[in-house]
Write a protein that binds this DNA or RNA. Sequence first.
DNA 1: GGCCTTGCCGACCGATCGGTCGGTCTGTAA
DNA 2: TTACAGACCGACCGATCGGTCGGCAAGGCC
Lengths: 237, 237
Amino acid sequence: MRSVKVLPNTATEAQLPASDSSPENPFVARPPSSREKILEVAESLFAVGGYAGVGMRQIAASVGLSKSSLFHHFPTKLELYAEVLDRVIERLELGLCGEAAHPGKAADQLDHWIASIVGTLAESAPAARLLLRALVDDDPFPAIEFQPTDREPMSFEIRLDRVIDRFRTLLEEGIADGVFRPVSVGDAIQSTIGAIVFHFASGDLGEALIGEPIFSGSAVDRRRREVSEFIRRGLLA
Amino acid sequence: MRSVKVLPNTATEAQLPASDSSPENPFVARPPSSREKILEVAESLFAVGGYAGVGMRQIAASVGLSKSSLFHHFPTKLELYAEVLDRVIERLELGLCGEAAHPGKAADQLDHWIASIVGTLAESAPAARLLLRALVDDDPFPAIEFQPTDREPMSFEIRLDRVIDRFRTLLEEGIADGVFRPVSVGDAIQSTIGAIVFHFASGDLGEALIGEPIFSGSAVDRRRREVSEFIRRGLLA
DNA sequence: GGCCTTGCCGACCGATCGGTCGGTCTGTAA
DNA sequence: TTACAGACCGACCGATCGGTCGGCAAGGCC
């Protein structure tokens, strides 16, 4: 149903370089385009309410636009949601891409991996929840009645699969080298994802458990150390 | 708002002993009461769609009743959802209660704990998803506009807190005894919950990762071993 | 001046939402 | 037979849902 989706998005794309070329402008540090504002607001709202739990009116009101204007930037609610998810996975990829230059032993690579993902998830509160919802909600979106039998995989899903595949390779090589225990790779991935992502999605419960806001600097630093050590020991031979 | 809730439920309660007293009845092996059927159907639907993603009409149609009949058994959608969650946490408690008789070293207790929870989550597919949603969805329910400032904690939440508290005690004692590393207890709990619960909530992704249905016997057995060993090594000194 | 594009809006649409109401049917006790 | 209670249902309610449509204002281009 949805086409290949090369969204026009000309405004943002064309505006950014132009503004960038005059970096001395002291006023209005890049007034975020409406499109960008919509995406950010939608991200935080979808994170706490889920796809079905947030209405276009609510998003519009939070942005400060009318509902009609939302549909001027995004053809449907589903496309808006898809683009929100895309932004999340893109940030993850970006962080991992920076770490990809880190060659070395599998154990070190694992550390960099975990540090990168923890860092990315800690940067924006909605990310982990969105990710967890997307992983748990069957297929792509919750509660869609019709199953088009052969739904196209959606950008978000294939990109996520690619990330997970790279992690699987990391584990398999580590096992082959004798660095990691001969674990069931699939189960190890599941345990790792759960341990890392859940924490930053756990909201009030997590805050109650660790005794301070999840996203505070000290909590994030400690989390990085703790979960890294936890997973290292869980995997190392 | 909600009262102590000692639901009438007389039909079920009164009917069961009567039927039990005539166990030779070959016909209709305990036709589950409508109320029970509603709870079961609602559990599986809420698990995949979330609270906001499932309508009372959809539940009613799946049960084979009219929507009005649902409201005959449950005053509101929210109360139905709350009772669904209660059943899930109750099953968890029941499993742990059986294991509580297992005294011994902290490491052994940890193993029994993990085995019990994995067993309970593996028994019914919706449980893990429901649990994860309840943990991630802020407070109790998703996307409730009004925050009554001091919402009553809800049976589900306090019972869950109790379970987690017992687990925290287990970890703290293990650390005091030198059995476990001196980890940050809060973070360790988060990692453990994530590693255990996420897997059984991961649906298609999990199936793709491990190469077989998550809830198949062999997958559950392996999962129990793998996640148990993973967490043990992550915690042991 | 005319003209087109872009961002935005109010008003409106059909569908669906949670929930209510009046009523029927059935089984049981008096 | 009558009376009552519980299970169940169709019809309906106001509110809200995602989405459409026509039009207004501003800026660039000819």
